[in-house]
């Protein structure tokens, strides 16, 4: 397919949008990772009240589309904050993604924690290793390994969900693709280009995560073979 000069200009716009998409995805993911790890550990405390609040909150967040959460923060954010501040699409999108995916990361961390065998905790105790050392050297490495496939999965979903923030007015890859499609009357090529950006990134992620899993799984992969 031949690309005219004006179309080339649109592709430059697309590239600029792609940078914004990546910024949003990466910052959202990192914040959700930190938030999820903290929340996941706190909610494992054997405290009935914390457990109950967490169950209700997680159920609400996991029971609602992220697009709705994005709209709520974008349109409703100003109102909720008493109309003092105007929220930018990027801020609204970032807040929504972090709020939603913190819950998913937390649930993942909780599941991974529960799957570390009891014997591992007991062995560290019997060896007089103090809790901090046990966590750092024995428990955490195993939690990370158990959670890794899920964390990779969440990254791919966060990346794809950033596309939704274009609906709250963010000038990202998708919104530029839409503009270009409308202006050039060539929607197919621009939407395919946008799709390929996401496809390539998830393919790269899978490659990278396979290597990461091999590294964290050292000593464990042999068990499966």
């Amino acid at each position: 397919m031949l690309i005219s000069a004006s179309e080339a200009g649109y592709f430059q716009q697309l590239a600029r949008g792609a940078v914004i998409t990546m910024e949003l995805a990466v910052s959202g993911y990192i914040l959700a990772l930190i938030g999820g790890a903290v929340v996941g550990l706190v909610t494992l405390l054997p405290n009935r009240a914390i457990q109950a609040v967490w169950r209700v909150y997680a159920s609400i967040v996991m029971g609602v589309p992220s697009l709705l959460v994005i709209f709520l923060f974008y349109y409703g954010g100003g109102t909720l904050l008493g109309g003092i501040i105007d929220i930018t699409p990027f801020e609204a999108g970032l807040t929504a993604l972090v709020v939603v995916y913190t819950v998913y990361v937390a649930e993942l961390v909780r599941g991974a924690m529960r799957n570390v065998p009891r014997g591992q905790f007991e062995a560290t105790a019997a060896l007089a290793i103090r809790p901090v050392g046990a966590w750092l050297h024995v428990i955490m490495p195993q939690v990370v390994r158990l959670a890794l496939p899920g964390l990779v999965n969440i990254w791919m979903i966060v990346l794809k969900d950033t596309a939704l923030v274009s609906l709250a007015g963010l000038n990202d890859l998708v919104s530029h693709a839409k503009t270009a499609a409308g202006a050039t009357k060539e929607p197919f090529i621009f939407f395919i280009a946008a799709a390929l950006f996401f496809v390539v990134f998830s393919a790269v992620t899978l490659r990278f995560s396979a290597r990461l899993e091999a590294r964290f799984g050292r000593g464990l992969a042999v068990a499966k073979a």
Binding site: P117, G119, A123, A126, H137, F216
Partner: peptide
């Protein structure tokens, strides 16, 4: 010292590292 029925070795550490961990940390 204690030895368990299910060994409870640390799967992510080598044999040597398994034995070194407690002396180093504790």
């Amino acid at each position: 010292g204690m030895v368990f029925q299910s060994f409870n070795l640390f799967p992510h550490l080598t044999i040597l590292e398994n034995c070194m961990l407690a002396p180093r940390l504790a």
